[in-house]
Amino acid sequence: MPLGVKIAWSLVGVLVAIAYGLVIAGIIRKVMARIQGRIGPPVWQQFIDLGKVIFQRTATRHGWMFYLAPIFRAGGGIGLYLLVPVVIGVPALSNFSFDGDLLLVMYFIFFGSLGMALGAADSGHPHSPIGISRGLSQMTAYELPFALAMVAMAAEVHSFSIHDIIMVQQGGILHWNILTNPLAAIAAFIAFLGMNMYAPFNIVGAPQEIPVGPPTEYNSVFLSLMMSGRAILAVAKIVLYMDLFLGGAHSILEAFVKTFIIYFWSVFVGAVFPRFRTEQAVRFFLGWPTVAGIAGVLLVLIR
């Protein structure tokens, strides 16, 4: 496939992914509302919010680094999405996944977070660095079980290529990594809770403590870019998990179903828990999720 066509397809894919991320976020708001006994907003509420935020008549900014946070947040999300194959066997939807491997993807997750932190800190609001300090602390903590799981996955196929990891899982549900190495999967899925920032790990934006953390000063068009970045980042992460543990997807429908299931795991946990304190969250991840990850790696070594 020529590069131009591929870029065009990827662009379409990015737009679809943003829309899908917004729809998922809308469904989550609905589900959360139903758990709380409310009716909840319409599922397309996120689109209305996005439109409203873009159509804001005035905007304020601080220094020039202020621009960086939304750009890095959205750039990190889009970049991550572009590096992960969405549907196997369809070149149009496999994006640029052959230009990078699992390590690159892992570090691209940090690209968004770190860039966002840098930009948000420029606003000069004390809530931003406090939120960032919490967020980065938690990020390092869930990184350990996540890294253990990644290492286990990669060691199994002796390759860091996501494509290879998907290929080894073909041939039925029993070949999926979630069943062949459940311990590593447990570690990774608990790390996923921390990544998604739902309770009990939503310590970054904690409204009762530091409303609303890093994006406190963001408004108007900055906020809209941040919202779309968050949407696509969520989609990219669940696609990555689908590829690693649920055997990838062969059709768009399968991708929708699998990603949806993965995402709702964190939502259902988040609906019924209060929030950890920062050091409690860090200690939690360094506790038994790490043990599960170590056991997962041992499982690979024994085999």
């Binding site: 873009i54 159509f55 804001q56 008549r57 005035t58 905007a59 304020t60 900014r61 601080h62 621009y67 939304p70 750009i71 890095f72 959205a74 750039g75 889009i78 970049g79 606003s123 000069g124 609001h125 406190t216 000063e217 108007s220 068009v221 900055f222 809209s224 870019l225």
Partner: peptide, 26 residues
């Protein structure tokens, strides 16, 4: 990505007003 997003940010929406150092939501 950065260039495209920067262009989007600068051209779309309202033109941001620069506020000063301590003008924060406090």
């Amino acid at each position: 990505l950065v260039v495209v997003l920067l262009v989007i940010l600068v051209t779309a929406g309202a033109k941001p007003t620069k506020v000063n150092q301590l003008d924060i939501v406090y």
